[in-house]
Amino acid sequence: MPASPWTIIAIYFIVALVVAGVISIVPGIFTRKRPTKEKLESYECGVPPTSEFLGRFPVRFYLVAMLFVVFDVETAAFYPWAVKLKELGLFGFVEMLTFIIVLGIGYAYVWKKGGFSWR
């Protein structure tokens, strides 16, 4: 194959994009729209909506997102190390263990502060 894997993946992506595009256009083609006021209301188990949609949600979810960023960056840092671990040997292991211990202190702190318990 005369191309790099990423050119190939780009072509695959374009084909997948076309498929996804077709799927999102088709639903309007074969049917007529007969909207009524009740149909267009947001569904709340059949009773008229009691309050406006404000888009608010519990602040707990923001905390989850923040914790995720911290630990996800750590996971990403593990990969290059994991690939080369056989060559790095014990030196690489001890280096990474230091990193994990530092991170573990942060993890223990969040746990003690109740960051992981859902209230």
Partner: peptide
């Protein structure tokens, strides 16, 4: 996103 962390970490032993 919560389970993605454990998923990413569970693959690392395989990579090693």
């Amino acid at each position: 996103i919560s389970y993605e962390l454990a998923m990413g970490l569970s693959i690392i032993p395989v990579v090693m």
